[in-house]
Amino acid sequence: MAAVLEIDNLYKAFKVGFIPKKREILKGISLSVAAGEIFGYLGPNGAGKTTTLKCVLGLIFPDRGKVAVFGHPPLAAKARENLGYLPENPYFYDYLTAAEFLDFYAQLFGLRKKDKEEKIATLLRLVGMEKARDLQLRKFSRGMLQRVGLAQALINDPALLFLDEPLGGLDPLGRKDLRDIIVRLKQEGKTIFLCSHILQDIEMICDRVAIIVGGRVISQGALESLISEKVLFTEVTLSGIDPADLVDLGEPVSTLGDRILLKVFQEDNIENLMALVHERRGRIHSLVPRTETLEDIFVEMVRQG
């Protein structure tokens, strides 16, 4: 598939302090995003995720390196015609109502009056904000702002969507809604570039990820190739057994009443444990093998990086 976004060896340093001291934020970022995929851009705070995004959007100028959005440089209006962007912690014009706010952006894309009204109504419905249509944005909660922020990013029906920490500030229900919306947008054929440090959410929906630490991409690829299928340990909840008998089989994590949560590291021990429980007439309530998650990889890499 053709690449819609290509970043090649990007460098950016900022001068900070009264006596300017150079601080390198990006130290040679290279990545490419193919059409139609959900691309996760992961990294701890201060890794350079937002700085990369700003270079792509033409908000800051990289010191070195190349960015191509649909093959155009970021400052070309053509590059931005087909692009949507939801910033981190979005703040918008708080003196506007939700409808006026969307109307303003629709006008910047030159939408016609009739299409405009239809589009605004559809988008407000999509993000579940129809009721807040005529409310000034200053009265919005953070989660509500996040929702109209997404509506704003979709106003031009973009082919490429940049979402910076889109799940921040949302309650569990809001997160689920947003995840569903993102997956639906993918089905419509849009490409989504997702910056985040909330890993569970990314894991479920991303096709490919890049992990950035300290201004460098340290790993990049399809999620399956990054995460091994290897079982790290098995979590077993059981009851009716004396904890003292379990010490050889695994590591007891906690007890609640007579229920014991046990971490078993060797697969052979599972068999032994089952035999023990059977013999003592105890009960097994759950048995969950834990494979490697993105979080494990992430923590490992951040530690190394």
Binding site: A77, R80, P87, P90, F92, Y93, L108, G149, F162
Partner: peptide, 14 residues
């Protein structure tokens, strides 16, 4: 300061 310029300049305006 309020970062509203981020979204605005990400639209096709110079």
């Amino acid at each position: 300061d309020k970062k509203t310029i981020y979204t605005l300049l990400s639209k096709p305006i110079q």
